[in-house]
């Protein structure tokens, strides 16, 4: 057979078995690697170690006490509740946005794509202020809400709103390029086979983007639980009521209760590590499995036998 398999050439890792004349001199390589490791060590590994050693400095008992204290538990509960609402909402929004952007042409499409990224370019504090200005006591909808006895700012709904706003680009940003690369051929094939819109979504589109979606969700969740700025503005810092984990850490820290602060912070650090782990494995599957992401789709479509 004369088929030339593009995958055979492109699939090779660029770093592996690169002939010496194509790569940098040993010294340069060593320096680059050392620099990268130093950077990582100072900025990531060291802080992580500090967090855990500080947290466990006074023994496991104190650590356990710090994270099972009433206010700490309520902060954990609140954070979980906020994430439990924000993540599904953004999954829905991200899917809808990605679908609209990649499957339809409509006026203002480019504007929509830019707007999706807005939360990333706006400082979270501004995002929080926006919510206060809209829904706060002196805000635009403040009086209207007050009349009906609804409180948004300094209450749970405000926290959710702020978190949703800050995290909404993750899913859409992950899905849009994946769905663009996927193209519409499979969906059209399903259409000619008689399938309706819902079946096409569940059976054809979603399985094709599931890894990208999961990846987006993991990132959304990590950010939702760790968000500080926007949440800080709208929370009001009512202990045991509107304090999420990051806010609780700050309060403890300001009260010079360092061990407790680090103990609670270690929960977030653990979350980060778990997120990283999931991310890693998702990414690996994403790449390996055809249909998982853009790379997989292309490889699946082109390689011949």
């Amino acid at each position: 057979m004369t088929i030339i398999e593009p995958a055979a050439f492109e699939g090779r890792s660029p770093a592996a078995d690169r002939p010496p004349h194509l790569t940098e001199p040993r010294l340069v390589r060593g320096m680059l690697i050392a620099l990268a490791l130093l950077f990582l060590g100072v900025l990531l590994v060291l802080p992580l170690i500090v967090v855990f050693t500080e947290a466990l400095q006074k023994g496991v008992k104190v650590y356990a006490a710090a994270i099972t204290e009433r206010e700490a538990l309520s902060a954990v509960r609140l954070t979980l509740a906020v994430a439990a609402i924000a993540v599904p909402l953004n999954a829905l929004f991200g899917l809808a946005a990605a679908w609209a952007v990649t499957r339809f042409t409509f006026p203002g499409k480019n504007a929509l794509v830019t707007l999706i990224d807005l939360p990333f370019s706006v400082s979270p504090v501004i995002a929080g202020l926006m919510i206060v200005l809209l829904y706060g006591a002196h805000g635009l909808f403040g009086p209207w809400l007050a009349e009906r006895g609804l409180q948004i700012v300094f209450a749970f709904p405000g926290l959710v709103l702020a978190t949703v706003f800050v995290t909404f680009p993750f899913v859409a940003r992950e899905l849009i390029p994946t769905m663009q690369a996927l193209g519409t051929a499979q969906e059209e094939a399903a259409l000619t086979l008689g399938a309706g819109g819902l079946r096409i979504f569940w059976r054809v589109t979603l399985p094709n983007v599931r890894w990208a979606l999961l990846y987006g969700l993991v990132m959304t969740n990590a950010r939702a639980m760790g968000e500080f700025g926007a949440v800080s503005v709208v929370s009001g810092h009512i202990r045991g009521q509107t304090n999420t984990i990051p806010l609780h850490v700050e309060i403890l820290y300001n009260e010079y209760r360092f061990t407790a602060a680090f103990a609670v912070a270690s929960l977030l650090a653990l979350l980060a590590l778990v997120t990283l782990g999931i991310r890693q494995s998702v990414e690996r599957r994403h790449l390996r499995r055809a249909g998982g992401g853009p790379a997989g789709v292309l490889a699946g479509g082109e390689e011949g036998g």
């Binding site: 051929a185 499979q186 059209e188 094939a189 399903a190 000619t192 086979l193 008689g194 399938a195 309706g196 079946r199 059976r203 054809v204 399985p207 094709n208 055809a290 249909g291 997989g296 789709v297 699946g300 479509g301």
Partner: peptide
């Protein structure tokens, strides 16, 4: 109608059996 695409547009997450069965399941 039955339509065969230039690049086949098979469903990569389904086996050969499920690909062929798709229209029948519908």
């Amino acid at each position: 109608i039955g339509l065969v695409f230039q690049h086949y547009a098979l469903f990569p997450h389904m086996t050969v059996f499920e690909n062929i069965a798709f229209g029948l399941r519908v």
